[in-house]
């Protein structure tokens, strides 16, 4: 699924004064690309993702997911949105949390994997009947990941999904996502604060300016995976992103 955003602006009705979060953001992400969005805190990255996920309505500008505006794509559950908090329902087991994603607004014509297969994919087969409060933070995020996979969506919107986890867990989960991305061949828009993480994962990195945010640099990552973080090509791209972030 392509993501296409044209001249998107968004202002929050806040007190005492409205907050202009995005000003004239335009971007195109072709189907199947792994794109990263990086930028300083408060520049509007989460706002872009919430607009794409239909959780906010834009003040002006156009958003298309293939040929559909977000509400249409959401109605068909073509979009999986995942944020920093796993937001699992604490009164449901891991399996029930995953199955809920399939039971709510069901799309019977698009068959997705079973909860057991999904739990296997995120390596939690033994924890199917465990409640979230008995899982570690990383395990909870893995359940949330499996729950997103359960939608069988064509776009994954990932808003710093592993930011609250420790470095080691974060890295291994990020590789997990790359592996799953290869399996499911979806479009990914990955928000991060972490320059190395973005270069490690993405095909392409969009750098946002401080608030009100717009796309300030758009950098291709022509490296094959797995990537060597000590290679000169890798470090050159890191340098390029750092320069773009500083330029503002």
């Amino acid at each position: 699924m392509n993501i296409s955003i044209q001249d998107l602006s968004h202002t929050y009705d806040a007190l005492p004064a409205p907050i202009e979060a995005l000003s004239s953001v335009s971007l195109q992400i072709p189907s199947g690309q792994f794109a990263a969005l990086i930028g300083p805190s408060g520049c509007g990255k989460s706002t872009v993702l919430r607009l794409l996920a239909g959780l906010l309505k834009p003040n002006c500008g156009m958003i298309y997911l293939d040929d559909f505006p977000p509400p249409r794509a959401i109605a068909q559950k073509r979009v999986a949105w995942m944020a920093q908090s796993p937001a699992l329902l604490p009164w449901k087991t891991a399996r029930d949390n995953i199955e809920l994603a399939q039971r709510v607004n069901p799309q019977p014509r698009r068959n997705s994997l079973s909860s057991d297969e999904l739990l296997n994919l995120v390596d939690l087969a033994d924890f199917a009947d465990v409640y979230p409060f008995s899982l570690s933070g990383g395990m909870q995020q893995r359940v949330a990941l499996a729950r997103s996979l359960a939608l069988n969506a064509s776009v994954w919107l990932m808003d710093e999904p592993f930011a609250s986890l420790d470095e080691l867990t974060r890295e291994s989960l990020a590789f997990e996502v790359i592996r799953l991305w290869h399996i499911f061949r979806v479009t990914v828009l990955w928000v991060t604060h972490n320059i190395y993480e973005s270069v490690r994962l993405a095909d392409r990195i969009m750098v946002m300016s401080p608030r009100p945010g717009h796309i300030h640099a758009d950098i291709e990552v022509p490296l094959s995976r797995p990537r060597d973080e000590t290679s000169t090509e890798f470090l050159a791209i890191v340098k390029q992103i750092r320069a773009a972030l500083k330029a503002e």
């Binding site: 996920a53 239909g54 959780l55 509400p71 959401i74 109605a75 559950k77 979009v79 999986a80 949105w81 944020a83 908090s85 937001a87 329902l89 994603a101 709510v104 607004n105 939608l151």
Partner: peptide, 12 residues
């Protein structure tokens, strides 16, 4: 966060 998750599935 839970409400957002359900809304992102277009739950009624």
């Amino acid at each position: 966060a839970m409400l957002d998750t359900l809304h992102s599935w277009n739950a009624n």
